[in-house]
Amino acid sequence: MEILFFAAIVAYFAATMLQSVGAMMDRNKLTRAARAIFIAGFALHTAFTAWRGFAAGRLPLANQFEFASGFSWSAAIMGIVLYARLKQNWVMTVSMPVAFLVLSYAAFQPMEIKELMPALRSTWFALHIGSATFSYASFAIAGGLGARYLAMLKKGHADSETAMKQTDYMTYRLICLGFLLLTVVILSGAIWAEQAWSRWWSWDPKETWALITWILYAIYLHQRMRMKWQGKRMAWFAVIAVVCVLFTFAGVNKLLPGLHSYAV
């Protein structure tokens, strides 16, 4: 059934390419085809995830491969839902590469299905890790939108002021969503940690980096909401903060062993 997984990567890649070319050349036919392929890829990805969950007898979010696949799936569904709501092509231009790149990263991780570790057998598992996939996906798409904003600014798209305003606003809204979900991740993790290890907080590297990410986005939101920062500065912030998200997601597991080391 791994064929579904690799077919989804191919579909996401093809969709990303078509979407990029279509968006650059302003060809609606190409972007329409890209969307169709992306949705097909998403269906394959969903089928693979469902199969894996069925085969493992649990939620398929227990290791780096499964989490990355869930992260990519979350980015894909968020892209599709946002497009359905906003009918804006640029949503897909950003969501597609995020879904593709994260799923490609998953392909380099060990794929074998393993029994769920005793430490992960908890009712908090779904909420804690499920929220994390959506939170990271929100931040990643927001970072992509930030990059798009900067690219538009560099090209001097003076005629697309509305598009830039929309991009800027959507970056902010996705960060709001990601921040709320990351809060749920941290708080549900604290309750779970108390159940499992008798401590709410252990300053484990994964916890510490989740907190660093949370504070970083808290600073973003304060600057945006109170200081009314917008545009270029906030776009740069969104792009740079994604590095922190990616380090919390992958870097910590590889470089800083701790209580969350089973996430490798």
Partner: peptide, 24 residues
């Protein structure tokens, strides 16, 4: 002030960074 709050948050980030990179 928010300015003071932001300074404190940046310092918490700096401490957390050091605490995660250096074994404790």
């Amino acid at each position: 002030s928010m300015k003071f709050g932001m300074i404190l948050l940046v310092l918490v980030i700096a401490c957390s960074f050091a605490g995660s990179m250096i074994v404790q």
